[in-house]
C-alpha cells in the first residue's frame, strides 16, 4: 500500500507538483500518463527517494517518510520496498547480464553467491535472456537491456515495481518485446504493485487497473482505463488524449 499525502517537490524554486495526494493499494497496476515535463518521473523518483520531496509524506507499507529529512539508514529501508526500471536502462556496464541481476542480491540482501545466481538465472530465463547470460550490456540490443533491467528489479523481490518510461529509449521495433515482458510480469505477479509511466497509451489501457493523468502542478484526474479513455471528465485530459491520437495517426 502506498499513501502519498500533500507531497510537494520543487527544483530551484520552480514547483514540479504541489500538495499531491495519491493512494495505491497492494496489487494495483497504476499507469501514469501526461505530457513530458509534467513531473511524472519526478514523482516516481520521489517514491524511490532518488529525489527528496520538499514537503508532505510518503507511506509504503510500514515505512513512512515525512519530508524533507530522512536518515541514510531509513532511506535504504524505504528503497528496499521498491524497485525501479529506468528509461535509460542504467545497467552496470562492467558486469554481465548475470552480474547485473545478482549484484543487488549479494551486496544488499547479503545472499550467498550460489543462492543469488539461482534466483538471477530464474529471472533471466523469465525475461527470455538465458542465451545472453554471460553477455555484457554493450553486447545487447536496447530491448534486451531493458529486459535485464526488469529482471534485475524483480530479482530483488520488491513489493512495488516502478517503471519509468521503460520503452521511450527504444526503437519502435524493440518496444514490443519489453511491453510483452511487462505484461507478463503484471499478469503473473498479482501481489506486486506496479506503477508505470509510459507514452504507450494503448498498452497502458490494456495493462493498468487505474490511470492517473498528470500535468504540470500535479494530478489532473484519475480513474479506470475505460473512464479515462472513453469519458474523460477534465478538459486537460481530453486535450492530451486528442493530441496523442493526432500524433499517433500522423506517425
Amino acid at each position: 500500500m502506498i499513501n502519498i499525502q500533500h507531497l510537494t517537490k520543487q527544483f530551484n524554486h520552480q514547483t514540479v507538483f504541489e500538495d499531491l495526494n495519491l493512494q495505491i493499494d497492494t496489487g494495483e497496476v497504476v499507469g501514469i500518463i501526461g505530457p513530458s515535463g509534467a513531473g511524472k518521473s519526478t514523482l516516481l523518483r520521489c517514491l524511490n527517494l532518488l529525489e527528496t520531496p520538499d514537503a508532505g509524506s510518503i507511506q509504503i507499507n510500514d515505512q513512512k517518510f515525512v519530508a524533507p529529512k530522512i536518515s541514510d539508514r531509513d532511506k535504504i529501508k524505504f528503497r528496499q520496498e521498491t524497485s525501479m526500471v529506468f528509461q535509460q536502462f542504467n545497467l552496470f556496464r562492467q558486469k554481465t547480464v548475470l552480474g547485473n541481476v545478482t549484484e543487488g542480491l549479494i551486496t544488499v540482501q547479503k545472499r550467498s553467491k550460489a543462492e543469488a545466481e539461482t534466483i538471477a538465472r530464474a529471472q533471466i530465463e523469465a525475461v527470455g535472456l538465458t542465451d545472453r547470460i554471460d553477455y555484457y550490456p554493450q553486447q545487447l540490443s536496447g530491448g534486451q537491456k531493458q529486459r535485464v533491467g526488469i529482471a534485475r528489479s524483480l530479482a530483488m523481490q520488491p513489493n512495488i515495481l516502478l517503471l519509468d518510461e521503460p520503452t521511450s529509449a527504444l526503437d519502435t521495433e524493440l518496444v514490443d518485446e519489453v511491453l510483452t515482458t511487462i505484461q507478463q510480469v503484471v499478469e503473473t505477479q498479482k501481489n506486486l504493485t506496479v506503477i508505470i509511466i509510459s507514452h504507450e497509451l494503448s498498452f497502458i489501457r490494456d495493462v493498468a487497473t487505474r490511470i492517473v493523468v498528470f500535468d504540470v502542478g500535479g494530478i489532473v484526474e484519475q480513474g479506470t482505463p475505460t473512464e479515462i479513455f472513453t469519458t474523460p471528465k477534465k478538459e486537460r485530459t481530453k486535450q492530451f488524449l486528442q493530441r496523442y491520437q493526432r500524433q499517433a495517426l500522423t506517425s
Partner: peptide, 21 residues
C-alpha cells in the same frame, strides 16, 4: 555514469557500497 549510481542506490545500496561496487 550517474545512471549506474542511481541504479545501485535504487537497489538499496549504502553510500559505501555504491562507492565500492
Amino acid at each position: 555514469d550517474r545512471g549506474e549510481i542511481e541504479a545501485a542506490q535504487s537497489l538499496g545500496m549504502t553510500k559505501w557500497q555504491v562507492l565500492k561496487r
